[in-house]
């Protein structure tokens, strides 16, 4: 297996009726990379994440993880194959406890045992500093705690590739710093991560490589500092703002 080919999405396209949401997008990642995916509203970021997570089937293109072609498999196969994700607005199992939220992904592996799953959930909770909430119902958590718990749920899949959809949206600055720290330490621990967000400052200080989308296409891909200075990228952002 070629290291550069740890993850490769090739020529992904997705149409909704007459609207082209994503148009021939290709991204490849090497193991342990931390990549930012940015773009104005409606540029196709979330559709891309949904395709990479297997929640949406691309009309065209292929997705390969560690050399295995995943395209067309259902979402749970992606998840068990090592692609874990969070959602823009946290989607927890609201009427289950924090602990139960965490052991669902672990137990989705038929070989997993409950005691082992609960032990690992304890580790994840202590990493996220949420141990005190183990027995609380997920719906009783604050917005920030829900974001953290969702991250924890993704980690319970022992993911090869972690997709974070707007992890910084709607969180207060103190939590933002905490989430950035978590992402940094996960990446340092060897996780390969794609972060989608609008917060350019957070992306700039967090990731070395940034991919920019506009109108369903990739318009820039490279070191964050260069990409964020790219006139085409600035135009895409300001142009989108003018259009509003």
């Amino acid at each position: 297996m070629d290291e550069a080919e740890f993850f490769a999405a090739d020529g992904l396209s997705k149409h909704f009726g007459g609207i082209i949401a994503v148009d021939g997008l290709s991204i490849s990642l090497s193991r342990g990379e931390l990549v930012g995916l940015i773009g104005p509203n409606g540029s196709g970021k979330t559709t891309t994440i949904n395709m990479v997570a297997g929640a949406l089937r691309p009309d065209e293109g292929t997705i390969r993880l560690r050399g295995v072609t995943m395209t067309g498999s259902p979402a749970h196969v992606f998840a068990r194959g090592g692609v874990a994700r969070t959602f823009q607005v946290p989607r927890l199992f609201r009427r289950m406890t924090v602990l139960e939220n965490l052991i669902v992904p672990a137990l989705s592996n038929p070989a997993a045992r409950r005691a082992e799953a609960e032990r690992r959930a304890g580790e994840v909770l202590s990493f996220l500093r949420l141990e005190h909430l183990t027995r609380s119902l997920a719906r009783a958590l604050s917005g920030g705690q829900q974001k953290l718990l969702e991250l924890g749920r993704a980690l319970m899949l022992r993911p090869s590739l972690l997709l974070l959809d707007e992890p910084f949206a709607g969180v207060h600055p103190q939590l933002l710093a905490q989430i950035m720290e978590h992402i940094g330490s996960l990446n340092a621990g060897g996780h390969t991560i794609i972060v989608v967000d609008h917060n350019i400052d957070a992306i700039r200080s967090l990731v070395r490589r940034t991919v920019v989308m506009a109108q369903g296409r990739k318009i820039a891909d490279g070191p964050s500092e260069d990409v964020l200075r790219d006139p085409a990228v600035i135009r895409a952002y300001t142009g989108a703002r003018d259009a509003h």
Binding site: A55, P74, H76, A79, A84, L92, R95, P105, L157
Partner: peptide
Amino acid sequence: DDEGAARAAG
């Protein structure tokens, strides 16, 4: 509680 999230959880 959330079918899509359950799929994403494997």
